[in-house]
Design a binder for these strands. Structure first.
Lengths: 340, 340
DNA sequence: TAAATAAACTAAAACGATTTCGATAACAAA
DNA sequence: TTTGTTATCGAAATCGTTTTAGTTTATTTA
């Protein structure tokens, strides 16, 4: 059946006017008589006319689509960001095409290419772990498509960025442990080249040194941030070497939970003997026993700032050559719970 | 700057051939000489030509867009579904527009309207809690747009559906508790009108009666499935009335964790004194202590079956009047961990 | 060599809307 | 009545691509 969607042409035929008039009537142009406008609108309603958005966008050039490229969707933080951005965009009548990259550079490139083909008005991107150099982004930017990086960014790229103030947040977390009287604080850090990981490490380090404690290389180990079993294994090894550890600052909630699990296994009391602080404030962190002290990353604020920046850039057609790029920092909150 | 994207027309001008030839060359038509095809492709690459997908879709009618409407994205199960469907669709070069409804009927209607305007080729939808009657879906279906319902469906609607085999799964879970020797099994159920909630309850009931135990109304209470504190409060009230409870089957992992938390608080051993089984296999469930026994809903299989069904319906232009609708059941897995 | 066939190409319409610019009609002012 | 003004409408171009139907050129066959 497929009742062939009613078009403007069809409306025009039925009413015996031109397509131009119908279009104008529907879009509130002043040069159409009150009565004909009413007629058109009435019929449009009756026949359930919807403009073919594809055709409109095609004609108007602006597609009203933006792309959202990120490492994963099945992830507490990112899914919140996806949800928020879609919601914000829909208020502006903009649709968003979401592309997960699964931390894979090739997928990231493919995703961007797809978005270019779709003529998106702009792109929001959080880089994959594999992405070192932003060449592919620059190429696309040269096509005139505004790009804003968020969360996982590259310091090398000439775009506006929105990031969590990782360094401050980490410092805040570690200072919290210090005020709790902890003196031998371990840090479970993430990949060496990830900017978030670097900044959180730097925050840890400056909290330690600023407060007069001595920074020890040995207390910092690298863990896979989203793998609880591996994180536990690595922490176990560290803890067995350094039983004097009385505080842990972990790169993610998962790693923090891994540490707690190991400590429980060794019958060490959390928080009395060892305090633990995580990072992210995933849903999990409020469900564990003890509930986890952590840093809330404010996904919604991140989404809002990123969307707004992109939106502005689209409107003003700003591009990378015309001015300095800006980096916006999203403030975090230390959520103190039972693990510290 | 915005280097005006190169179009087919531009390529044609440069090469001194017609746009038709360029188009055919690019699309591998047979009636274009080998040498000219090579010329075209070479130049296209040089000038970074990308077809304007908007224009292509517009011309071809098929938009290569599908809509995905669901209650939330920031949710372990749904975010996995979103991710999977996007991934599956991208293999077919199809983009998906995701629309969260936040369990709100008005938002659901708006979302569907947006999708219609965009001329999507088809719609996948998981209903909001507020949705009782699928009138708005039928209206859209009458426009000739294929619709497939998944997960949260309405028994009243005449569409293909893909659902978790909730009843079987629940039965399996409760039978597991019974084989563990449990005799007084409580059920924390969800909303009275939610189909999932109903089916899980029915599964619980039939496991009880089929195994010769007596079904007691009193042991079934309603909880807010995603609110841990409220769930705990309700369970606490029940447990204080019925200290003989030795097993709990909860509608979600969150509610199950709530029960465990309350039991811990009362120094009841899990699983020895009371065993607990959840539902969903969220990431959380493997991170709690004790690790939670639960039902894995197989989000990926759900996504795959839903996408495939929609895809088939789009291809065959099947619609609701032409045949009987089908309901596909996604099998679940009982994940036995430490809480039972 | 002429006719028939095959190969390579192109003109033009079409998709559904917007928008410019000119045409017509209606009315007022002179 | 003529001119000027304003209100209302419509023809046609346009966006970038695909595709049909036809045209031209080259090649084969008789």
């Amino acid at each position: 059946m497929s009742l062939k969607k009613t078009s403007i042409k069809y409306l025009a035929n039925v009413l015996g006017v031109s397509v131009a008039t119908v279009s104008k009537a529907l879009n509130g142009y002043p040069d159409v008589k009150r009565s004909t406008r009413d007629k058109v609108i009435k019929l449009a309603k009756e026949l359930q006319y919807f403009p073919n958005q594809q055709a409109v966008n095609f004609r108007k050039k602006s597609t009203k689509f933006i792309g959202l490229v990120l490492p994963q969707i099945n992830h507490f933080y990112f899914s919140k960001i996806v949800e928020s951005i879609i919601e914000l965009a829909s208020e502006d009548n903009i649709s968003v095409i979401v592309k997960p990259t699964f931390e894979n550079l090739e997928k990231e490139k493919m995703a961007l290419l797809d978005l270019v083909k779709l003529n998106v008005d702009g792109i929001l991107i959080s880089l994959s772990d594999e992405t070192r150099f932003p060449d592919h982004l620059i190429e696309i930017s040269n096509l005139g498509i505004p790009i804003v990086e968020f969360d996982k960014i590259s310091k090398l790229s000439p775009f506006d960025k929105v990031v969590t103030s990782d360094r401050d947040a980490a410092k805040k977390a570690v200072e919290h442990l210090i005020t709790r009287g902890k003196k031998t604080i371990a840090h479970l850090r993430g990949p060496l080249l990830s900017q978030n990981s670097i900044d959180r490490f730097l925050g840890y380090k400056s909290a330690i040194t600023d407060s007069g404690l001595t920074f020890e290389e040995e207390l910092v180990i690298q863990v896979p941030p989203n793998n609880i079993n591996e994180s536990q294994r690595f922490f176990s090894r560290l803890f067995n070497k350094r039983k004097d550890i009385d505080g842990v600052f972990a790169i993610t909630d998962i790693s923090a939970i891994a540490a707690i699990r190991e400590l429980k296994l060794q019958s060490i009391d959390v928080p009395d003997q060892v305090s633990v602080v995580g990072f992210s404030n995933w849903q999990i962190s409020s469900l564990t026993t003890p509930r986890l002290t952590t840093i809330d990353q404010n996904a919604f604020e991140m989404a809002k700032a990123s969307y707004k920046k992109l939106s502005d850039n689209i409107k003003t057609k700003n591009n990378i050559t015309s001015r300095e790029q800006e980096t916006i920092f999203i403030k975090t909150d230390l959520i103190i719970r039972e693990s510290s």
